[in-house]
């Protein structure tokens, strides 16, 4: 168009009108579509009750995404489930060795090793022999026999795990890993990352651990209730969570017989840790939050500042046995 007409007033108005009509059309379209709608899923992941809430303007998109995430959770169950005899972790526990582990299993062992080292062994992924012992003796309601406890303790040592991309191996007989919690943190992270990658911007993922993707659609942080450790059927406080993870460790979850025997063991003594009533850790990723909360719960209040300092953007809410609360 070599002979372009001069910019007449009429032409300028037309351009202006076209320029304004697109934003107006967009506004109209937004109005038609309304706000993001929450779509929820309730189910089970790694033996724990699981929830996901996704917000998306198109519920169909969120529903399909949910299905795809279920497919991924099912795949990860086949890696980490202790209830499935054919899961990778069960095979490793049974044979003491597994060749060419999946990337997922290796990653979790790798992260476990780091947190175990950082916490001086307060967090230990190889706690499973203790767990089994307590679960067996819990039927009678009594404390485990000291000799058997000592035997189980000998098989608990995170430094005796060699994990590489080629194989994961226990160096002592009788060892087994639970990856309890940290695997759930990993699944939580994995699903949250996938959803973020799919373009979701507001989601709360609770797959054993809690992670918030973005913030609530109204722009505020998500509010997550913390269980009152002294009265586990009610919540004591709430935590604001946006683009972060929350992991809560407390002995009130699963108990063996009496209240002092629960599922979080001190790997050094083989006895359930009872220094603190509850530890809640907020960290960018669920795997980290999980490892740290267990480590602090076992190691106690004094170890918390150093553990938190070693990891960026982490904080913790500790509840002492007497109910007093310490925020770090």
């Amino acid at each position: 168009m070599s002979s372009r007409p001069p910019l007449s007033r009429r032409r300028a108005l037309r351009i202006l009108a076209a320029g304004v009509s697109i934003p107006l059309g967009v506004l109209a379209l937004r109005r038609v579509r309304g706000q993001p709608q929450p779509v929820q899923w309730h189910g089970e992941a790694l033996g724990a009750v699981a929830h996901m809430t996704l917000w998306h303007p198109d519920p169909g998109v969120a529903k399909r995404a949910m299905l795809r995430m279920q497919a991924e959770i099912a795949r990860l169950e086949a890696v980490f489930s202790l209830h499935r005899p054919e899961s990778e972790l069960s095979r490793l526990n049974r044979d003491g060795r597994i060749g060419t582990p999946s990337r997922d299993l290796f990653d979790v062992f790798d992260q476990s090793r780091r947190i175990a080292e950082a916490s001086g062994g307060a967090f230990d992924p190889t706690i499973q022999p203790l767990w089994r012992l307590y679960a067996e003796t819990a039927r009678s309601g009594a404390a485990p026999d000291p000799a058997r406890l000592a035997a189980a303790l000998r098989a608990v040592d995170h430094t005796r795990v060699s994990a590489s991309r080629r194989a994961i191996r226990f160096d002592r007989p009788g060892m087994s890993a639970s990856l309890n919690g940290i695997a759930q943190g990993y699944v939580t992270d994995r699903i949250t990352d996938l959803l973020g990658n799919e373009g979701f911007e507001n989601a709360v993922i609770e797959l054993g651990e809690t992670r918030a993707l973005g913030h609530a659609p109204d722009g505020t942080a998500f509010t997550i209730g913390l269980v009152d450790p002294l009265q586990p059927h009610r919540t004591s406080r709430s935590v604001a969570l946006a683009d972060a993870s929350l992991s809560v460790s407390g002995g009130y979850g699963l108990r063996f017989g009496d209240a002092s025997r629960h599922h979080i063991f001190d790997p050094k003594t083989g006895i359930s840790a009872n220094r603190l009533a509850q530890v809640a850790v907020i960290a960018p990723r669920a795997t980290l939050a999980d490892g740290l909360s267990t480590a602090i719960y076992v190691a106690g209040e004094s170890a918390a500042p150093a553990l938190l300092a070693g990891h960026a953007s982490t904080r913790a809410i500790l509840t002492r046995a007497d109910g007093t609360v310490l925020q770090l």
Binding site: A18, L29, R30, V32, R33, P57, D58, G199, E201
Partner: peptide, 27 residues
């Protein structure tokens, strides 16, 4: 795409402005 199609412009303002700018250029 996410802004203009899947989210139908129900997104944060920077994204919407970006998508609208592309559409305006397209005119």
């Amino acid at each position: 795409f996410k802004t203009a199609i899947t989210a139908k412009f129900v997104r944060g303002l920077p994204y919407v402005i970006y998508a609208v700018a592309l559409l305006l250029i397209g005119l």
